[in-house]
Design a protein around this nucleic acid. Sequence first.
DNA 1: GTCTATAAAGCGATAGAC
DNA 2: GTCTATCGCTTTATAGAC
Lengths: 189, 189
Amino acid sequence: MPRVMGERGDVVPLLAEVFRTYGFEGASLARITEGTRLGKGSIYNFFPGGKEEMAEAVLSEIDTWFRDQVFQPLRHAADAQQGVADMFTAVGRYFLSGRKVCLVGVFALGHERDRYAVKVQAYFAEWVQALAAALQRAGHDADGALALAEDVVGGIQGALVLARAADEPALFMRALARMQQRLVPPGTC
Amino acid sequence: MPRVMGERGDVVPLLAEVFRTYGFEGASLARITEGTRLGKGSIYNFFPGGKEEMAEAVLSEIDTWFRDQVFQPLRHAADAQQGVADMFTAVGRYFLSGRKVCLVGVFALGHERDRYAVKVQAYFAEWVQALAAALQRAGHDADGALALAEDVVGGIQGALVLARAADEPALFMRALARMQQRLVPPGTC
DNA sequence: GTCTATAAAGCGATAGAC
DNA sequence: GTCTATCGCTTTATAGAC
C-alpha cells in the first residue's frame, strides 16, 4: 500500500494551530478539516475519540516539546546561567516573537481547564520548578528562586496576553528582555 | 404594570460570569438562560443583538468599573504611591483573590479579539498608561515607568493564568504582593 | 486511508401567546 | 416582560463507497 500522505503525528501541529486560533469550543470540525486539509473521515480515522482526543494529542506534543527543549536544558545545563538564557531564546522562538499564543494558557483560563486539569497543571508546575532549580544553581536562595520563577513564567503568559491585545508582538519580546535582565545579576547590587 | 424583576443592567453581571466561565463560543444560550435564570424571550428582549450585544454590554461594564475604580484613582490620587497601593487592593478584590479570571484577557487570547479588538486594546492600553503615569509621579523616569507598568499589568494577567492552572488562588495574591514590593522603592537601593 | 452522505443533537434566533 | 414552540442552520459523529 503506497502510504499517500502523512501519519497521525503530522496532523497534530496543524490541529494545534486550529485550537490556538479558535479555542476548544470554537474549533469546529469544519475549521479542523479546513486547517488540516483532511476530510472528516480521515480525522476520525486518526482520532476515533473526536475533538477530545485531538486536544489531548496536541497537549501531549506541547508537553514533549517543552520538556525536551526547555525543561531538561534548564535542569541539566552545565552553566545554569546559560541555561536560563537559552530558555528565553527558545521561548521567544516558540511563540514566534509574540505572534503565537500559548494554548496551555488559553486552556487554563477557559472551561477546558477542568477536562485537562492534570496536563495544564503539570505544564506550568514543571516549568516553574525547572526554572527555579536553574536559578538556585545560579546562586539564588531557594525561596527567592521559586518566587522569581513564578514571576517569570507568569510574566511570559501575561506578556502574551498584552502583546495579542495590543496586536503588537514586539511588546512580548521587550518583556522577555526585561525579565532576562532582572535575572542575570544574582549577587550584584 | 408591576415591574416583576430586574432591568437590563441587573443581567449584565450574570452574563459576565457565564462568559468568564465558558468563553464566548462556549457560552451557549442554554448556559446563558441557566446563568441568568431568564428565558430566551427575556434575554432577547434586553439584547436584541443576541450574544454579540451581550458580550459588548459586559465589556462596557468592565471598562466602566475599571475606569472608575482603578484608572481614575491611579491618575488623580493626591498621593501617587498610595494610588498604586490602592490599585493592588482593588485588583485583588475584583479578581476574588485569584478565584476569578479576567474576561478581557480571555478575549484577548482567543478568536474574540478580532471582533472586540478596540475594547480589548483600549482596556489594557489605558491600564498601562494610567499606572505608568502614577509611577512617574512617584519618582520614576518616563521610560522606566512605562516598562514597569507593562510588567505589572502583564504580571497580573499571567498570575491569573498560573493561579487558575494550579487551581491555587493564593498564587495570585503572592504574585500581587511581590509586584507591589517591586514598585514601592522608587529611589531606594 | 480518504472521501461523501447522512443521522441525531444542539445551536442562535424568531414568533406569538399571555 | 416573560414564557413556550418552532424555524433553519450547524454541530459532532457515524456509515459505507471507493
